[in-house]
Design a protein around this nucleic acid. Structure first.
Lengths: 377, 377
DNA sequence: GAGCTTGCCGAAACCGGTTTCGGAAGAGAA
DNA sequence: TTCTCTTCCGAAACCGGTTTCGGCAAGCTC
């Protein structure tokens, strides 16, 4: 009898319902529904009358009222993991732009959520599935073995991954040919005259990391250079880690004069590590990376990188997912796209050889820290 | 008789419905609903039996089935305008993180869309309203006069603005005290010894632009400096426009030795304009801006700026909107938060006076362009 | 003990669509 | 003319919840 919380009164205009259209047209509401949804057992003249009346009245079906019978809410789900500062921030706007662009074309929408940790992501994903807030999901940043995939496969909910995975059974995906980019970066540096080319890989939990390492190796082979495991640094997806990884590479007896980074941020860490040692990027040290973050354009010199078109990725992913929801087989929904080389100033012929570099590094001084204070106004 | 498109078979596990819970408990489904929704006319023992059974069976109401009767879909709408490269990209991840964080707490979700142009934004907004994909909307980047506000007021749909507007009647909002930040920036530069302090405002269509200009003026007053209209440059929200605006300010008979920019990107344009003239930021020219974009940290020297906490903004906006949807009056839902000063290297005592600066600029040379090529791999 | 509350819950309507089922009307064939 | 087959659409069930209405039983008052 008593409602738990006060509801606000909504005296506003009553909606136009399907019954209104039916009354106007003089047919039953079932006929209106079938006419509007393209059933073949409605005569052309009736269909025309109905669509015109619907148009004139401004009828727009309530999406959740449709959903109760059809089971479709016409929405694509996206659960992000947004943890620290170094998450995939800059991509997001373009990515979402691409997603909604494609979704809008079909009058679908995007339902989005973000959680800081992986368990929280899975929990929210489960909630969205159970409440049926979305008909399918887009999985960014897929891991080698991904718990979200298991959850979705078990619940028989359609999904598309952004990034390949070890076992693609039952999975649809879209990905960028990171391996080709790494290969091209390596051969490019070799062509410039570099002989000791290092690689700083991304997070080992991601499959892309392995693919990009393979691309690097393949590039070495193509250039006729030997693969030296010592030149593969520690994984790095942040500036800090990138700097640490590069510091360690420089300590080798034969240090690299060039680095191929799996991730732009790690490359910016290379900048940071090089500076206090008096090594100039594009002179003593060359760098090519991957991603296309905007900070790369502001670094000095600009970072040469293989950029990912996030907008296009979003658009394609949305289309693939809608196709998947409509019943296409996952095996038919797999796409690869190339990265785009953005040439800036970080890759040049080596100013010094590896040997000379090693000698110059003999008496180096410790790095100084950048200080940054905050204060409330 | 004939469906227009083939639907995929979903043999999967049938859901647990409210009837299942009713059968298990031996009560009617109406009783289950009331027990689960906190109605007061259900005995404690029955409520306990019902909640336990629901828990055990894993019952989770279908949100769109609830919506059909309650009219609530438990979702907050967000329609972004993502046009060119210079849109509010970096904020977005944190902002969305904050939004969904707060929404998740109440088991709500975010429905998001993005369009490139203003008319498209309004159109999509209308569609979401009509299909009732969200119970209310968050309006980022409010204009002085905002068409979206009219649409929402006319449709009697709850909303909260991120940013104040000229006529706040019937509007709830959350905003940052940009005027205080601009005032503090100005007095800070005056305290460093600057006497000719310019201001580069943001887009005139935004109300914040006016507020920040007022803050700048108020700062001048507090520092005992005269207000010179010539020192207010042309509006700029991009690097390019910022550079152009600053070039013009430098052409004054008494050029400024410091600039307060309403927007970080304009400040980065000041960097770009200063470089070819041999003017060093933090020496001949000081800059303080507002926003806290990540590029500012990568500029040389780092850009001193008043940063906005986008995550917090998102969180507060979500809470305000939920309160609004639950019936709170818009007048009670208005909040202001301060910006945070991030001190880096762009604001220092003037190396030269305005007069000396004018003399040095006597024989300057044209700016050189940064070239950037692209190539597909 | 009759009458009146009060607490508690079942039955049924309802929300706004979609889909099933079957029948009327018309066309074509025998 | 009669029979059969289409074509087209109305009636009603249905989806999974929420909310209204009213009634039974127990407790209370006078």
């Amino acid at each position: 009898m008593t409602a738990p919380s006060a509801a606000p009164s909504r005296p506003g205009a009553t909606r136009v319902t399907i019954s209104d259209v039916a009354r106007q047209t003089g047919v039953s509401k079932g006929t209106v529904s079938r006419a509007l949804n393209g059933y073949t057992d409605i005569s052309e003249s009736t269909r025309l009358r109905v669509t015109r009346a619907a148009e004139r009245l401004g009828y727009r079906p309530l999406s959740h009222a449709q959903a109760i019978r059809t089971g479709r809410v016409r929405s694509l789900g996206l659960v992000l993991q947004i943890d620290n500062e170094d998450s995939a921030r800059p991509f997001l706007a373009n990515f979402i732009g691409g997603l909604t662009q494609a979704a809008s074309d079909e009058s679908w929408t995007i339902t989005i959520a973000a959680e800081p940790t992986e368990p929280a992501v899975r929990q929210t994903l489960s909630r969205l599935i159970e409440e049926r807030k979305a008909d399918g999901f887009i999985l960014p940043r897929t891991l080698k073995r991904d718990g979200r995939v298991e959850t979705l496969l078990a619940a028989d909910v359609p999904f598309v991954m952004f990034g390949r995975t070890v076992d693609p059974t039952g999975c649809a995906w879209y990905d960028i040919r990171g391996e080709d980019a790494m290969r091209a970066a390596t051969t490019r540096l070799a062509a410039l005259g570099h002989r000791r080319i290092a690689h700083i890989p991304g997070g080992q939990q991601y499959y892309y990391s392995q693919l990009r390492l393979d691309g690097y190796k393949s590039g070495l082979r193509a250039a006729g250079l030997p693969f030296d495991p010592a030149l593969v640094g520690r994984e790095a997806t942040t500036r800090r880690a990138g700097a640490a990884a590069f510091d360690k590479l420089l300590a080798l007896p034969e240090p690299p004069t060039a680095v191929v980074c799996a991730v732009d941020r790690a490359a910016l860490g290379v900048y940071r590590a090089a500076e206090p040692l008096g090594l100039r990027i594009g002179r003593e040290i060359s760098v090519i990376a991957y991603d296309g973050v905007p900070e790369g354009a502001y670094a000095t010199p600009g970072l040469t990188t293989f950029a990912v078109n996030s907008q296009q990725a979003g658009e394609r992913l949305a289309r693939l997912l809608i196709a998947r929801i409509r019943g296409a087989a996952p095996e038919e929904l797999r796409e690869l796209a190339p990265a785009t080389l953005v040439e800036r100033g970080s890759d040049r012929p080596p100013a010094v050889s590896s040997k000379e570099l090693a000698m110059r590094l003999a008496g180096r001084e410790p790095a100084k820290q950048n200080v940054q204070r905050e204060r409330q106004i």
